[in-house]
Amino acid sequence: MKTILLRADDVLRHGSWVSGQGRITQHVIQLSLMLCLFGFLYGSVMGSFAGITPDHFLQIFYSAIKVPLLLFGIFCLSLPSFFVLNNLAGLRDDFFQVLRALMASQAGLTIILASLAPFTAFWYLSFANYHAAILFNTAMFGLASILAQFVLKRYYQPLIDKNMKHQWMMRSWLVIYSFVGIQMGWVLRPFIGNPNTPTQFFREHAWGNAYEKLLDIIIALISG
């Protein structure tokens, strides 16, 4: 337990084991495990909105595995195009280091999320409104994503120092990632679990388009 926490501390502080040379594959695996663990932690808190009773254990469990699934899903979908982009820019040789930087920032994201989990639990204790709970969780994800960008920048800095092209690559990663991320979050609904609907792993007819929905809402707002 203590070693895991110390390792997590290293990820945030840009510790030597995640930024040094060699054994990069091993680092990536360790970082993915960390992502699973802390993502699971936040997910289980997130899914506890309806209460911690035996009928709701399933929802808690679903939410707990969905958070790591969400992050891995976004990661795996964005990676191929990003890999091609890197190749085109002639940065193929650095790609393993890039992969580790990306994974470290993903792990950092879940660690930050896990540290915000008590706030979420406290919010659930204070307010019983389902929509407010969704908004609060969105805010927590937003805050964690913004902070994780600092982690990403710190891991990318040595690469940027080596070649300025990496700066553009990092920006394009953020664009691809957030574009895919919003839709992935929509498809993997529900995360919190509406207490009035039965527990499901996926919503029926979930394969809508988040952007289309967003456009609908905006049009509805404008046309009154």
Binding site: L12, H14, I112, A114, S115, L116, P118, F119, A121, L147
Partner: peptide, 16 residues
């Protein structure tokens, strides 16, 4: 303290 301490620690670690 239980609610606020984890984030304090993580944010402190983030700013180094």
């Amino acid at each position: 303290l239980l609610v606020t301490f984890p984030s304090l620690y993580v944010f402190n670690a983030l700013v180094g």
